[in-house]
């Protein structure tokens, strides 16, 4: 009887760990989608701006780089949640 209970307790802990890993994976995946869309939008608009106004390319490139890095911070936060929860 005790061995069965112990086995179920281990199995429960495994299930919790598995759900934790699953949740962390989902969190990382979902956290990467938003920045992916954001970065695409930033670069697309920056290229459009550089095509319209080539003389402002330096300023646009600087702003684009900073924008990409800020957007990427969201993915980084998702990644940190992933490593703290899941692995």
């Amino acid at each position: 009887m005790l061995s069965v209970l112990a086995q179920e307790a281990v199995s429960g802990a495994d299930t919790i760990a598995a759900y934790g890993a699953l949740g962390a994976g989902f969190a990382y995946g979902l956290a990467a989608i938003g920045p992916g869309i954001g970065i695409g939008y930033i670069v697309g608009k920056s290229v459009e701006a550089m095509a319209r106004q080539p003389e402002a390319a330096g300023m646009v490139r600087t702003t684009m780089f900073l924008g990409i890095a800020f957007t990427e911070a969201l993915a980084l936060i998702g990644f940190v949640v992933f490593i703290l929860l899941g692995i």
């Binding site: 990467a32 920045p35 992916g36 970065i39 695409g40 670069v43 290229v47 550089m50 993915a75 990644f79």
Partner: peptide, 16 residues
Amino acid sequence: IALLMAATMFGYILRL
């Protein structure tokens, strides 16, 4: 500039 688009996407994946 067209390559920039691809490099940004693959660069994002590569850096992650």
